[in-house]
Simulated assay, not measured.
Amino acid sequence: MPHSDGAGVIDMVGDGVPSSRIGERVWIWNGQWQRPMGTAAEYIALPEAQAVRLPVTTDFAAAACLGIPAMTACQAIHLLGDISGKTVLVIGASSAVGHYAAQLAVIGGAEVIGTVGSAEKARHALGAGVKTTINYKTEPVAQRVKELTAGRGVDAIVDMDFSSTIQLLPDGALAPHGTLVGYGSNAYGDTPVPFRTLLFSSISLRFFLVYDLAPVDRQMAIKNLTDLLANGRLSHTVGARFALDDIAGAHEAVESGKVVGNVVLDLP
């Protein structure tokens, strides 16, 4: 959802919020979730918890990429459990979420395979630590996954499009006792699932909505991201920047699908 994320400086605080927070650099999550207005503005008023202290080593443009992309990646990797020594397939490894998910999986000790849609996006994914990329437009994904894993399939999949990724499972892309974590789908109606494959391979499906994380998961993601930012362990990709007055151009850039990385708005 656009206009959910952002970063800036606290200008005023309400009752019950320490005045010491005025002037604090922060990043924002769920800025427009269940609200008519969001972060595409000069000012936004939010509950205190939704303004998270930003380490001085991270600039505002990078911080504006955290709320949905980085937190989604954080929760997806968290739901996989211990991935040290395992192989993880990141669907859309050059996407905003996928770029963070690949980095977090590598930090967690996994070997990452990523699907991409072009040579440029492959280079971007490799820069995040992905070991091998698969061009889903020109290569049979399940077949390539099996070739890369000696026929076994990957241990886990981080999935941005459940409606297409679920079709890879009957062809052995996910190893027995593997886990698919999904955070989106291009088809939000009913999606058939290969029940026999899921059952006889003991496959786990995990889903979540980043806007509606359980409080304990939200706090864990915030802590993990804060630690990683403070230690300079995450790279961020701002693919394009627009002035607030050119917000239409920013939306058109996102819709074009040509920008590699996040599109952010700069305030005057």
Rank of each mutant, 00 (worst) to 15 (best):
S95H: 03
S235V: 11
K131R: 15
K86Q: 07
V26R: 07
G127M: 09
A122G: 09
E42A: 12
H251D: 07
S201K: 15
Q50I: 08
G172F: 00
S94D: 06
S19Y: 14
V116L: 05
R218H: 06
A101F: 01
A230F: 02
K146T: 01
A76G: 03
A173C: 00
G239Y: 04
I113V: 04
Y43K: 13
F60S: 05
V154H: 00
M12C: 14
S4E: 11
T72G: 03
A70P: 02
D212W: 14
K137T: 04
R206N: 05
M220T: 14
L265H: 08
A61R: 11
Q143E: 14
S185Q: 04
A125S: 05
P176W: 00
P192C: 07
G14P: 02
D246Q: 09
H78N: 11
T138N: 06
A7E: 06
Q75V: 11
S84G: 15
Q103L: 01
V145T: 05
C65G: 12
E252D: 14
V254F: 12
P55T: 06
L174T: 01
A156G: 05
W27A: 10
A248M: 09
N30E: 08
P170S: 07
D217P: 08
A49Y: 14
T58C: 11
F242R: 02
G109I: 01
L198M: 07
G249T: 04
I83Y: 04
G16C: 02
V259H: 02
S164E: 15
H78T: 13
Q34E: 15
I157C: 07
Q219L: 13
R25P: 09
S164K: 14
G184M: 05
L180P: 00
I166W: 05
R144W: 10
S94V: 10
Q219E: 15
A142R: 03
A61G: 10
S235C: 08
P215D: 07
G6T: 05
P140F: 00
Y211K: 14
K223G: 10
G182N: 11
A122S: 12
V216Q: 12
A102N: 03
A64M: 05
P36F: 02
E48L: 08
T179P: 00
T179G: 00
F200Q: 13
R241S: 15
T115P: 03
D82V: 08
G85N: 02
R123W: 13
E48P: 10
T237N: 11
L148W: 00
R218V: 04
K137F: 06
T115R: 01
A45V: 13
V259R: 09
G98S: 05
H251S: 08
D5T: 05
I157E: 09
N224M: 11
A125N: 02
A76I: 04
V90A: 02
S164Y: 12
Y211R: 15
N30C: 09
T179K: 00
A40R: 15
A70T: 08
V17E: 03
T165Y: 02
N231G: 11
E252I: 08
T57G: 10
P215I: 06
T237Q: 12
P140E: 03
F162V: 05
A51T: 13
G117Y: 00
V56M: 12
A248V: 12
L180C: 03
I68F: 04
H177K: 12
V260Y: 11
K131I: 10
A122N: 09
G127R: 12
S19F: 15
S202D: 12
L168S: 09
I44Y: 01
T58G: 09
A128R: 11
